[in-house]
Each structure stands twice: as C-alpha cells, then as structure tokens.
Design a protein around this nucleic acid. Structure first.
Lengths: 194, 194
DNA sequence: CGGACAATCACCAATAGTGGTGATATTCAG
DNA sequence: CTGAATATCACCACTATTGGTGATTGTCCG
C-alpha cells in the first residue's frame, strides 16, 4: 500500500463539480484517493475511519452551521480545509478555511495547493498490529455474518474461546464493532467481498 | 457514424464543471459528443461547422452581452439552450434559456432533459426494490460501526425508529447480520470501502 | 377522497454481544 | 530453564440486538 497516497474528502453537493475536480486531478497523474460527501453530517464517519489530510469544501455546506463546523475543525486540527469557490462570499466566511480556489481556475493551481500541503505532511506510521492465524480464523467467520456460537461450532471450539479471540482482536485493532471489523477484514484481505 | 449521436456545446468557463458534466453523462452510457468553449465568441464557428442541437451554458458568459446572445439565439432558433445554474440569478436572466438545471442536481435529471429534447425518452422502469433514502442514511451509520443508539443520536431520531428502519432493511434485503449488511452497503456503493 | 408508502415512535421478550475477571496447557526463543 | 506469546476454556454483570406486536403522521398519486 502506498503510504504517500493522499486521502481527500470532497464536501460538495454537486456531483458534477465532484466528478470534474477528481477526474482532472487523477488525469494529472496524482496519487490521491477521493471520498465524496454532500453534507457535513457524514464527514465525521470518514474522519473516524480514514486518514484524511485534506477536505475540499463548498462553503454553502457549512454556511448555516458555522458552529458545528468550528467544532469539527477544532476536533480535527490536522486537516487542511480548502474552499471551493464558485459564488460570492463574505471574506469572513472564507477565512474559516485554510485556503480556497476558484472553480474557474486551472487544475494545476489546485494541484499546487495539494503539493504544498503534502510537503508539510509528516509521515506518521500507523500502528499495524498483526493478528494471529487463529484470530484470523475466528474473524473470518465472524465477519461473514456468523454469530459467536455459530463460529464456535464451525471451528470446534467453545464459545468462550471465540469470545476471547474476539476480545483480543478488538483490543489489537481498536475496532469495537463487527461492521468495522468487516471493513478491516476486507481491506486486509482476510475475507473477499464475494 | 451514429445518426442518434448528439453534438453538445458546453459554454462554461470552469474546466472542472465541464469535465464533471461530460464525464458523468458519458458514464451514463449516453452517446454524446461535446465541444468545450469558454466564451460566446467561438460559438458561431461551432454552429457553422457542426450539427449542434444543445448548448449547456453558464449564464455568466452572456450576462454582460445579452444583446449579442439574443442575436445568436434568433439566428439559430433550433438550438436548445440549457442554463448551468450554480449561483443566484434574477429570473429574468434565466428566462432567456429554454431550460436550466442546478449544478447540484443528479446527472439523471440532466440526461432526462437531453432525452426530452431528442424525443428519445425511453421508459426504462428498472423495478429496483431499493432502500429508501432514510434507510440508506440509517444503514450508512450502522455499517460504519455505530450502534443503534449512536445512530439515533447522529440522525436525531429515536432508537426505536432506527430499530424500525433496521428491521425494514433486513426484511427488504433478507440479510440478517450487520456484517452481511456491511458487505451489501459496500457493493451497493452506499458506503465506500476505504 | 382513499390507499400505499414513508418516517416516526413505543413496548416486550428472548437472545446475543461486550468487557472484566480469572485459569490451564503448549510452544518457542533467549 | 524461564518467560512471553498463543490457544484454549470459564464465570459474571451489563448492555445491545433482534424480532414480534402495535401506533400516528404526512405525502403522493390515481
């Protein structure tokens, strides 16, 4: 997995603008990964699960919710907020972002902004704990939708053992829900999407 | 050469919007050919050389040149002008176009407008017994690892309502585990894997 | 108008999961 | 040999989920 890849959230109600922005950046051979969301409600999910460094944000999405935006910004101080400007805003509104760009601007201007942020970005290693083989066995069944009891039957062990393994898995990964563990298992290729 | 192919001019200063608009329409398996121009000066050349049927037009490109726009419109009466709206305009400005769409609108709305013009409106009712928007909202949070109670807080509804939605989702999909629903949500692109 | 559907809320009982405390046995590296 | 890691099993208390049964409200459509 590429450690230099940037995860970028695009908080923009227009699918057209999202598509255009991401398409042009990707065409420029930039190694980014994009997440689209249309309102601020969903953004904390993304922050919780992903290593997000940049948010492209349409000011309209927070205009009536500046308090909530301030709270989120304070809560995630490392995130760089870039406003997507295609209308007229008061400068006091625009100052809530780290940077802005005009929608009519050339894509190279936007890419320069991304590059500037990347240079300042410190490579922080994400603690990558390895599960034991047995833990992977247990996880495989659990995230395929089997209950603790069913899993214990499949593996011919007691439900208590399954429970212990599950607890250890949750302690190691820090993920405390089966849904989260399912995502984990898929991305770690412990199970396949089929 | 396909006779049904539509030649569409996009008169739009923003490359991002042009890219997004055309990319999404092409992704929808629509047989269109696009010409990009950033101002009205070049448009008559295109009209002379190509068989243009539709112009997607950003009102800003003609706001200060309404007389010239009226002249061109009169000169090419068969052309259908669709305004690309992403700001606030006086209704008298918008009335100079045959139709408009909001940049935040779904691409299907825009495609419907194209189809209406070309009288190719195919009634493809794809009997998709899908989840409702609210059910998707609930599912989004649930499969991201939030509990019923947390989800009810996030959506500002009672835990009973979350429960009802969850039950309906499980009934509709026939999937009775959160892990299974997570896989479902990923494959249905309700959430993203990353 | 009336019926279908969507979204909201509530109660109840059974089952399952979570998280803490243990324990024992085996294996393997220092 | 010793200690760390792994795998196994158990009990307990609490909370959450699951799956029924309702209900009310509003909207949209024929």
């Amino acid at each position: 997995m590429d450690k230099d890849r940037k995860n970028i959230v695009v908080l923009e109600p227009s699918k057209i603008v999202y598509e255009g922005l991401t398409s042009l950046i990707l065409k420029s051979d930039h190694d980014c990964f994009f997440f689209h969301t249309e309102n601020i409600n969903d953004i904390e999910i993304l922050f919780a699960q992903k290593d997000i460094s940049v948010v492209f944000i349409n000011p309209i999405t927070v205009l009536n919710r500046l308090n909530e935006f301030a709270r989120i910004r304070n809560h995630f101080p490392d995130i760089y907020w870039i406003g997507i400007i295609y209308s007229f805003y008061d400068s006091s509104v625009l100052s809530i972002f780290n940077d802005t760009f005009l929608i009519t601007e050339d894509i190279s201007v936007i890419i320069k902004k991304i590059n500037k942020i990347c240079k300042n970005d410190s490579p922080h290693s994400q603690k990558d704990v390895e599960l034991t083989e047995r833990e992977k066995d247990v996880l495989k069944w659990l995230v395929t939708g089997f209950s603790n009891k069913e899993t214990s039957n499949k593996l011919n062990i007691s439900i208590h053992t399954v429970n212990t393994h599950r607890k250890n898995i949750m302690d190691k990964t820090g993920i405390r829900s089966m849904s989260g563990l399912t995502i984990y298992a898929v991305t770690k290729k412990i199970i396949s999407l089929d």
